[in-house]
Design a protein around this nucleic acid. Structure first.
Lengths: 211, 211
DNA sequence: GCAAAAGTGTTGAGATTACACCCATGC
DNA sequence: GCATGGGTGTAATCTCAACACTTTTGC
């Protein structure tokens, strides 16, 4: 029994996935999602969090079970059943570390992934679907943003994930009406009119029609 | 590694779950969802289908992965990670068989389940949530109905699962406009005006706003 | 003063809800 | 003929989508 962790983030208007380079075994040399065997005295979720802390240097982020992959031939040597977990992080909070176990680590655009080890391309597909579908009825997007952010930045998260432009005025109206964010006393400055910064009223997961 | 199967059906305006009575081990005497260890040369889904055929006597029905429960203390003797599967059957197609493994088998209203073995009350909760949420954006309700049915019977499925009454005229309009069902040449007779029978145009799972 | 992004309301179309009467059959 | 569920349309409300100009800053 193993866990794999799909860590996604957004940077530069692209969804990125965290991959590690496999060092040993039949998949050596290929990129894969970080993961490993579950210890006997460890819950599945704890194993996923451990993996996340070791490789991405992040704790206390959005993490949920994605799907359990249990086909008999997914690993050519041993029978491995693997629970995939799905995590979202604000890009600037991550600190990648290879550790001794892998030959490399890095961020890859999910739209242009290489051929991955095992059945991990399928895992990637599943996680993208999950991200898209949860976006519209939960506040999951919050997990990809820093503590404070502008409405334009929030809208960008939605546009990148849904892969289509959204109307600026309608978006602003919608998210303000939902009452999930509140303005703070500072502004984002740049070579243009400063933008109001907001924070989330609550970091709890919420289910409600968003878009 | 084990699988558990939550089989739900509707009968008499109630959602029923299929439970078996555990014969041996620390949970002996308690009711639980049917399940068992996954064979080495068997995928998770195949194991779930095998369980379903053995206990409920049904094959070729709606079945999907629900959640994998992997807490360390869910079974007091051995560490068992269990992938729960979720199945829906038309009540009249089932033929219950205990088999040698269990001390009993039966249908129980999900709203009034006894205290189940292991963490199965939690499994039951999760499956009910899944049923409710999928109802509104997929054609999952079809899986609970026989080959042909009246619109009133379809509406009853929705009302029982959502636990609220729906407007008869609006429901009829909605499902006919969706174009997923078509009338056939016969009617359901009774001590009142006969009702038009319908069949599904396709039994494939469909994702679209339903209600 | 100009470039660049922020901020702001209204209107029309389509969808959703609420609601009441007649119809066809079995007994 | 009466009890039972089947079948049908419309109006009012709400939601969603489309759309353009003014404001504030940095340079």
């Amino acid at each position: 029994m193993a866990v794999d962790v799909v860590v996604l983030t957004i940077e530069n208007r692209e969804i990125l996935a965290l991959l590690v380079k496999v060092k040993t075994g039949p998949a050596a040399g290929r990129w894969a999602f970080p993961g490993g065997l579950v210890a006997l005295q460890e819950s599945l979720e704890a194993a996923a969090r451990r993996e996340l802390a070791e490789k991405a240097g992040v704790a206390d982020i959005f993490l949920e079970q994605l799907f359990t992959f249990g086909d008999i031939d997914r690993n050519p040597i041993h029978r491995v059943v693997s629970a995939a977990y799905f995590a979202l992080v604000p890009h600037e909070r991550t600190h990648l570390r290879t550790g001794a176990k892998y030959a490399g680590i890095g961020w890859f655009p999910v739209k242009r992934l290489p051929r991955l080890a095992y059945d991990h391309n399928r895992v990637a597909e599943t996680s993208l679907q999950r991200l898209r579908s949860k976006l519209s009825y939960t506040n999951i997007a919050w997990s990809l943003l820093p503590e404070s952010f502008t409405i334009a930045e929030l809208q960008e998260v939605y546009e990148v994930i849904l892969d289509r432009p959204l109307d600026r005025r309608n978006f602003r109206k919608k998210v303000l009406d939902l009452g999930l964010i509140k303005p703070i006393a500072s502004k984002r400055r740049g070579p243009h009119r400063p933008a109001q910064l907001y924070v989330f009223r609550s970091r709890e997961p919420i289910i409600s029609e968003i878009l």
